[in-house]
Design a protein around this nucleic acid. Structure first.
Length: 402
DNA sequence: AGTCCACAGGAAGGGCAGGCGA
DNA sequence: TCGCCTGCCCTTCCTGTGGACT
């Protein structure tokens, strides 16, 4: 592209009527003024945490529902309101929000405690101290607090899966040793059967109250999108049926509002990039493909070298042989791949774990099957379209200098 | 009913890098 | 600088398992 034409491109872009008037409202971290179709949950949660306004400890709450059902949004919304009411009432209410899925922030017991202590104003080094000392620092920080403190632990299941439920046991018993501050815990999880695996004592004290968030249906999603589009886009930009299509697609995916918003945002970006003045159904279709492609490609890109070698092995095996392959085959071919790219091969045990990780990340589908006397193994297939195969393969070939 | 395969996956521990306090 | 602690990645060793085969 010559300099002249790129200048034309820029001035063309600037002279067009803008597609977005406020893109922020389509982001997942945006808290709107109202939360449609969650009135019940807002009321229930509100009632549970009411005692905080009288400087009493509210019950611990356990919230569950699948992704994009508004759990975090409702919790933040209600707690914001609670803090405001507390201020008017001269009651000190503070909240700490922790997301246990955030890598290198709160994904281990140490980091989790360090994060909480940090929020309470006590610095803990990122590593180096014994865990019991971090507990001490955290308790000390708590002792200096007063009023009611509500700790929201989002994606709590992923931390418990990783480090066990001991830290929850300690946390739920925290109040016995504290005088000035009352601590309540709100646990949020995507996994409905999560509490089944907890220690009985932890379970009973953590879920003194339970709240369930059902998935949104297509009509409800449409309402949510309608509210946001009024603020997000310039007037008359949206073709009829765009909202419906985004809502319908997201409803198929367990009523995930986050996905609906993503689709709408990316559709807008697609239109913007193409220089179109109206967002049409065509853009939603493009957005659907892009959202999936981007997610998987991003996951592949961020994998360590060994996982990439395994993904490469899987792709080449599936390309050349059958759609479904077994662990043993993968391992043998992986050894060959390692030789080719001069990588020290891992043991089968470790490869088995990496395959489980890839399964959890949604890159592969792995199902444990039994072939009778020919053993038990995992049957592995790829979780994305043929189209994406080529893109990922190209990326990996480039990565390994093939 | 018992055997046997090819793994799955749990437990324990080694080695490393990074950080702290003495 | 050294000893101690952490998380992380990995290996080694081990037990468990579903179902075809005998």
């Amino acid at each position: 592209m010559t300099q002249q034409t790129i200048q034309n491109l820029f001035s063309n872009y600037l002279s067009k009527k803008p597609i977005f008037s406020n893109k922020k409202v389509l982001m997942s971290n945006y808290t709107p003024d109202t939360v449609p179709h969650r009135e019940n949950q807002i009321n229930q949660l509100g009632r549970i945490i009411l005692p905080a306004l009288k400087n009493e400890r509210p019950s611990n709450v356990f919230i569950y529902g699948s992704t994009g059902t508004g759990k975090t949004l409702v919790t933040n919304y209600v707690l914001n309101e609670l803090v405001i009411a507390g201020k008017q009432n001269n009651t000190k209410i503070s909240t700490i929000y922790v997301n246990c899925k955030m890598k290198r922030v709160a994904d281990t017991e140490y980091r989790f405690l360090a994060f909480l202590a940090d929020k309470l104003g006590k610095k803990v080094p990122p590593t180096g101290l014994p865990t019991d000392q971090v507990y001490k620092i955290f308790f000390k920080a708590l002792e200096e607090q007063e009023g009611v403190l509500i700790i929201i632990i989002d994606e709590i299941d992923s931390l418990v899966d990783k480090v066990g439920d001991d830290f929850l046991y300690n946390l739920t018993r925290i109040n016995q040793d504290l005088e000035n501050v009352k601590v309540a815990i709100i646990g949020i999880s995507n996994n409905i059967s999560f509490t089944d695996y907890l220690d009985a004592r932890v379970k009973s004290s953590l879920s003194e109250e339970d709240l369930i968030f059902p998935p949104y249906n297509a009509v409800q999603l449409q309402d949510i999108l309608q509210e946001r589009t009024k603020i997000a886009f310039s007037e008359g930009i949206l073709e009829c049926g765009v909202n419906q299509k985004c809502a319908a697609l997201a409803a198929q995916e367990h009523g995930d509002a986050r996905r609906a918003l993503d689709l709408l945002r990316v559709a807008g970006e697609m239109a913007e990039r193409n220089g179109d003045e109206i967002i049409s159904i065509k853009h939603v279709d493009m957005a659907e493909e892009k959202v999936d492609t981007d997610r998987i490609l991003e996951v592949v890109k961020t994998q360590p070298k060994q996982s990439k070698a395994i993904i490469y092995t899987l792709l080449s095996k599936i390309e050349n042989e059958s759609d479904k392959i077994l662990t043993g085959d993968v391992y043998n071919t992986y050894i060959a791949t390692c030789k080719k790219v001069i990588l020290k091969p891992l043991t089968q045990r470790r490869v088995s774990d990496i395959l489980s990780e890839l399964d959890m990340l949604g890159i592969i589908n792995a199902k444990v099957i039994s072939n009778g006397r020919y053993g038990r193994t995992r049957e592995i297939s790829l979780a994305f379209s043929k189209d994406l195969h080529t893109k990922i393969m190209d990326f990996l070939k480039n990565e390994f200098y093939f």
